[in-house]
Design a protein around this nucleic acid. Structure first.
Lengths: 344, 344
DNA sequence: TTGAAAGCGATACCAC
DNA sequence: GTGGTATCGCTTTCAA
């Protein structure tokens, strides 16, 4: 393509270390030594000065790609993101992790991988030659994907989520524990006919399915006589909640576990508007322990989810990067306990 | 560094196109042609096959850095992130934008730039040679920063936030409009002594200061007799809200604009617990139009903030990347209107 | 239709 | 102390 310098008179092309060298009257090697403060080589003060001045004058900035190509490795940590909006809890967690990693001098790259799955996605990620990959969804990666990543030089492959996968380290976040905590709470308080509020919004299955499964399993495992679990769909709107509340008495449910606090609050308000007493007629419990749940009357009971600190996970990642040979470990990182307030 | 292959027996190094060429018995050029489907060159079917097979067998994945180094440009869009957790509204917006960009075949990279400011940060970003930079905080970038980025080859530099900066395109999100909408609402309804709830949490100034400024300006501009604005600090906790509510009657405030709906809900509950009638004694308005505000009684009035779609902004970025010569434009993208419910 | 080779930008070894 | 130069992996022009 022919490039005619038009309105941009000063559109010089991007300065390279060669330009700096030329201007300073030294070799590119010297430029590199000075700018990287290479300790193995001593450069005279006047030369250093000339190089620094030249670099400043040209506005020279080193080229990260060229550097890591030469070095044969980078410090990029890849975090593929999915389109679905996770709740406040998880986005806070990911944010923290990201910051902790950058504090350890990693470059964290969030990469949106449009509807690819498994090996295809892994290949796309591998092109960036990340030193570590933190994939939120193990199922979409698969053992083949892990192999692809490792072959391409990734020293650490982690999955963060409800599943694990062969060959990768896992930060296992077992949502079933959330459902289990709720179930035990209800059963201990004599509730038997348990509803499970499930969001109709697409893409959230990854979060609610394990929670409901945990609820079910626990109810069945305890073998409490007459205990049942019923799934109930709820969209995130007042109308949807009103519709569900309108047929509530027919459902014969005396306790309900909601996917999270927001859905719980929505439902609880609709139940109250319908004249149903909470917790008298129906006990309600949410999850995530949002501050706002305390503002309702009765105050919302909830399952508090404990996630490890971003810092500790960043350190774990760092450790694996430094010792890539180690056997993949599974870290069970999700804790869940009931915060009993007034709605249950 | 000496590398002794120890526990990992199959630790062959990462395959390159040269390895593929060797295995397929062709040259590296041919490998490139085949794998990139170069239309300018026709390769015989048997050769294509051999190359593909070899690539598959080796698990070959091209090296993005090498490729873009050679190409002289990349399609990376850099979005520096700040440590502060923005609200749901903005994180949704950024998410959308990110996805829209990746749909336009850009690689979106979120980069955490630890406490650097201005030129330093810009230099760190420039090392990645992004084709575009979307910086959330104009003030921290500065005109010098913009220059650095452009010098390093960035075709589009955008700021997204309440301020603009010389040389960069701006997606101006003028928070003062939010305060203005609230002020007009209160004044029209005869309220005079207006409180402004301001979060004590650090790092949020960028969001609330413009809102409060807009509130102030508007009250002063209308010159309503006896109208005042008082800033009131509130931490995100029930205790903090209770403390503020306890001294409420002394404050003599008949209307209060909260930084956002969450703080508004927190305060409103505390006021009610203190026996203060909302909206009778004090009108309350929040902002962001959270669903949960509708669940309180009275339903929370709010200032709804309109942000443009991620898609339209992604297209704007794309347009500027394709025509980098264009004069920087300022796009005023934040709309604000009052949603009057019951608390005001 | 295929191959040889230049070159993108930075670094580090080896001479001088 | 400083400078040449090979090299990282890939694309692309030019010749064969």
């Amino acid at each position: 393509m022919v490039h005619i310098p038009n309105q941009q008179p000063a559109q010089r092309s991007v300065p390279t270390s060669a330009d700096v060298a030329r201007l300073a009257g030294v070799s590119r090697a010297t430029v590199s030594y000075v700018l990287n403060n290479t300790s193995a080589v001593r450069i005279s003060e006047p030369t250093r000065r000339r190089v620094h001045d030249a670099a400043r004058e040209l506005g020279y900035v080193p080229h990260a790609a060229a550097r890591s190509l030469r070095a044969g490795h980078s410090r990029m940590v890849l975090m593929p993101t999915s389109e679905i909006p996770m709740g406040l809890l998880f986005s806070t967690f990911f944010n923290e992790l990201q910051w902790a990693l950058s504090r350890l001098d990693y470059t964290v790259v969030q990469y949106a991988s449009l509807g690819m799955t498994g090996e295809d996605a892994a290949r796309a990620w591998a092109e960036l030659r990340p030193v570590a990959v933190l994939a939120p969804d193990a199922s979409a990666l698969g053992p083949r994907g892990v192999t692809v990543l490792k072959r391409s030089g990734a020293k650490a492959v982690f999955t963060l989520g409800p599943q694990r996968v062969e060959g990768a380290h896992a930060l296992l976040m077992d949502g079933r524990r959330v459902g289990r905590a709720a179930a035990l709470h209800f059963l201990a308080r004599g509730r038997r006919r348990i509803g499970a509020i499930v969001p109709t919004e697409a893409g959230l299955e990854m979060f609610w399915q394990p929670r409901v499964a945990g609820l079910r399993e626990t109810v069945e495992a305890t073998g409490t006589h007459g205990a049942t679990v019923t799934e109930l769909s709820l969209g995130y709107s007042e109308e949807s909640a009103a519709r569900l509340a309108a047929r509530w008495r027919d459902l014969g449910v005396d306790a309900v576990f909601a996917y999270n606090d927001e859905y719980a609050m929505l439902l609880m308000r609709a139940l109250q508007d319908e004249g149903i007493d909470v917790p008298g007629d129906t006990a309600v419990i949410g999850s995530d322990d949002l501050m706002l749940g305390r503002l309702l009357r009765p105050r919302l009971s909830t399952v508090r989810i404990d996630l490890p600190s971003g810092r500790s996970l960043a350190e774990l990642v760092d450790r694996v990067v430094r010792d890539p040979g180690a056997e993949p470990e599974v870290h069970d990182v999700l804790g869940a306990d009931v915060v009993h307030r007034e709605s249950s």
